[in-house]
Amino acid sequence: MRTVTRWIGDRFAMIAALLVLGYLFLPVAYTFVFSFNDYRKSNIIWNDASGPTLKHWKDPCGAPGVCDSLVTSLQVGLLATLVSTVLGTLLAFALVRQKFRGRGASNVLVFVPMATPEIVLGASLLTIFVQGFSRVGLQLGFWTIVIAHIMFCLSFVVVTVRARLQSLDPRLDEAAMDLYADPRSTFMRITLPLVMPGVVSAAMLAFALSFDDFIITNFVSGNETTFPKFVYVSYLRGIPAQANVIGFSMFVIAVGLVVLSQVVLSRRGR
């Protein structure tokens, strides 16, 4: 009897999991299918009159602004990832490896942005950018987006790197020092390589968060347009199928890169 329930239990969990994964992928599939739609005004309704077409794939930048917004998103994403990963990693090192006054306060300062709704982050940044920073010449645009993205990615980087650092045995550093490694080479040869997987996943997370952010960007972008903002704005006017082409391509590229990095990591692990 027990084996029967267990048999069903095993299958049940896996079947449910696959159904949920299917649910996660369903809209992606829709995005893919509609990239072949020979749409009229807005790429929402399938055009039965003319069949699927490859023309949007042949001319992905054909719709005005779509590629500019993609380039902006990539630039913002790379900058925000770079800065937030560096700052967040430094912070994580201080929080885990150093003893200082105000550590509790620093932990709260890192946590609270994650517990704040994005719309509040966006709104608050908008108020200082409009009421304060514009006076020193910082207008809403590319750089305000970068600043905002660094801010909200930072906490996620800290949390990811901190978890990795906490799982490291501090005795490894002691062992390295015992084996004639000065603090510099202890850091370079032991601590850093061991923390690196955490830093890499933090960076990937930061890029994903930045690339996909719309709510905060919407508040602080002024006339600058990122890819999600382009899609949101054009939804009201008429969305081009090129957005689907780019959205789906990004998905494929990202999955490809992640798979590649996994393969490389597991190779090196052996």
Partner: peptide, 11 residues
């Protein structure tokens, strides 16, 4: 040099 209690081998 030290042989640590939990060995502390570099993973």
């Amino acid at each position: 040099n030290t042989v640590f209690q939990s060995y502390a081998l570099f993973p």
